[in-house]
């Protein structure tokens, strides 16, 4: 995974350069492809920019909210507000989306901040996965898209809830230690107290941002814009890949796999992963598959997609340890796959 990190961005840079070279020089190899290329590149640009534009407001809300949490809310308050009992904590994490209807892009900076400020990690992590589905906006859009099959909207929320509760229990039981990536702060601290450059203990109250309201405002802006760059690079990378997939992968080819229930569910989950759609709009895409794919496969698409996709996985990797991200993704895959097949037997 380290290598993907190290090589991923340069690789993309190389691909960009090749594409750019292709546009500029209309010679040789590119010459024969030129006509197809300009249409494809135009489509790529539209998709890439549109994914970014759509995500920017949510990212900004997320980083602003996270910065406000950091500057204005002390860790003690967070600790007091989160339930101590694990059962209550899991419920709290699963249903927090009803109060904070953020979508997945805005969720990650907020949760990272909450965990750093002492919220138990298992609660934060299930909030990341439950929040984008268990919220009023997504329910309404699913309901509208599947007008003829209202069971879809209910089972989407239901399955997401069950999956998150099970995930929460597994995390509570088995996850030891800090799931967050070692950031500059803890790295410095591990290196025999070099943290003294800009010493800030996480347990400290927000009062260390001295200088009154103006100082706090400055601190908020600083945190928010730093975090924008922190998360933004993963967003752009993810949007780039998702736009590439959408531009070059032919959906007609995919429908060949629509027969059997296990493969079609698994396939639709993979497809949702690659498309990286926002959870408020993916129901409309899913409904266009009605009649081609079984309802169970569509349900798998609708539940897995908002939880795990290309864009959000990259963003998760910016905040959490690779091992944690891989384990959680694997668990979710199995749970959603099993759940969607079961739901198809029972409900549709």
């Amino acid at each position: 995974m380290k290598y993907i990190y190290r090589l991923g961005t340069p690789l993309i840079a190389v691909i960009c350069l090749i594409l750019l070279a292709g546009i500029i020089s209309d010679l040789g190899l590119m010459g024969s492809l030129a006509e197809i290329d300009s249409a494809a590149f135009q489509s790529f640009k539209i998709l890439f920019i549109s994914i970014l534009l759509e995500a920017i407001p949510f990212i900004l809300i997320g980083v602003l909210f996270s910065a406000l949490l950091q500057v204005f809310i002390s860790d003690a308050v967070i600790a007091r507000l989160t339930p101590k009992n694990p059962a209550a904590g899991i419920l709290f994490g699963s249903l927090l989306g009803l109060l904070l209807p953020l979508c997945e892009c805005g969720m990650i900076p907020v949760v990272r901040r909450l965990i750093r400020k002492g919220m138990p990690a298992y609660i934060g992590i299930i909030f990341i996965f439950a929040g984008p589905i268990i919220n009023p906006v997504v329910f309404t859009s699913t309901f509208t898209a599947f007008r003829a099959e209202p069971a879809m909207a209910y089972s989407r929320l239901g399955l997401a809830f069950v999956v998150c509760v099970i995930l929460g229990m597994l995390l509570y039981r088995f996850m030891k230690g800090d799931p967050l990536k070692r950031d500059a702060y803890s790295l410095a601290k591990a290196n025999n107290g070099l943290a003294s450059i800009h010493e800030q203990r996480p347990s400290e109250s927000p009062a260390n941002h001295s200088g009154g309201l103006l100082g706090r405002f400055g601190a908020t802006m600083s945190h928010a814009s730093d975090e924008f760059f922190d998360i933004g690079k993963y967003l752009i990378f993810g949007a780039f890949l998702a736009a590439l997939v959408q531009t070059f992968v032919d959906r007609e080819v995919l429908t060949a796999l629509s027969g059997q229930s296990v493969t079609s569910s698994a396939f639709m989950m993979g497809f949702a992963f690659l498309l990286s759609l926002c959870s408020t709009s993916d129901a409309f895409v899913a409904s266009s598959f009605t009649g081609i794919f079984r309802p169970g496969a569509l349900l798998a698409f609708l539940v897995f997609g908002p939880m795990v996709d290309l864009k959000s996985t990259l963003m998760l990797l910016s905040a959490f340890r690779t091992k944690v991200v891989l384990a959680v993704t694997g668990i979710l895959f199995i749970l959603v796959l099993a759940g969607s097949i079961l739901a198809e037997r029972l409900l549709f």
């Binding site: 961005t9 340069p10 993309i12 840079a13 960009c16 890439f48 920019i49 970014l52 950031d183 500059a184 702060y185 450059i197 800009h198 800030q200 260390n208 941002h209 200088g211 100082g215 400055g218 601190a219 600083s222 945190h223 730093d226 975090e227 760059f229 922190d230 933004g232 690079k233 752009i236 990378f237 949007a239 780039f240």
Partner: peptide, 28 residues
Amino acid sequence: KAADCDCDHEPPASLWKNIIIYGLFLFP
């Protein structure tokens, strides 16, 4: 020093990494 506390977002030190990261933002 500006009002920030630089608690956890020090930019990477390597020049190449920086070029790539900022390049990623400049591409769109």
